[in-house]
Amino acid sequence: MKNASITPVSERRLKNNTSLGQTFRNSLTMAYRGLLKIRRTPEQLFDVTLQPIIFTLMFTYIFGGAISGDVQSYLPVIIPGILVQTVITTSIVTGVQLREDMDKGVFDRFKSLPIARIAPLAGALLADTIRYTIATVLTFSMGYIMGYRPDGGLGNVILAALLVIVCSWAISWIFAFFGVIARTASSVQGISMLVLFPLTFLSNAFVPVKTMPSWLRWFADINPVSHLITAVRHLTNSGSFGWDFALTLIGAAVIVIVFAPLTVRAYMRRT
């Protein structure tokens, strides 16, 4: 070995806790790893590139006439709806990929390193915000091509985009939790779809809730996805922050506060 000798144990500075700064740096390094992986396998970006394009086109032209009379007046309703639905669905992939990743030997090494325990998870989730960003940009671009001109202006559209990305990141902790406790990647996909399908469709994403039967409207009204969509609509269409905006951020924070520790604990218990 080139370096003649190693530092004796007695001369090392050792501590048993991880500082916040180190946790942050470790997570960023793990996010960098996630980005490198995306760069090596760009085909895993298919879903976030094709889904926004196809869904936006499809739903707008199918429902536009029936719900808002014509496509043009439907765009301010559907674009925020489709945006939230697409980006949140994308966050399932985070859980699935985490499961696949964790089965590999490299996670044993991460566990044996003196790094923050949360870093491998937080890093993976952080790297996936790039996927949400791609989906968001593409959905808005598709809308723009189809004639959507948000009255809120570019600044508010960007703010709305950030809100969706932050919320999807928060929600991805739920799927990360499934990813950690599930046995196989396909079961993660299964459970997650089961949870997400009702949540995204039984909302105000595609149709006004007043057309729904009262029991369904009750659910659509309390559905957190509806609140997120409403917040996005307010921002993009009128540039206003409402109660929904605050509620959505609080909801996102609660999800992270509950699921991040749960996920890390489950991750530590697995071998």
């Binding site: 790893r33 992986k37 090596r40 030997g105 490299v106 996670f107 044993d108 090494r109």
Partner: peptide
């Protein structure tokens, strides 16, 4: 720690 199965990142 060097494990029984190489604990390195395959895709990198």
């Amino acid at each position: 720690v060097t494990g029984q199965y190489a604990s390195v990142d395959e895709s990198l």
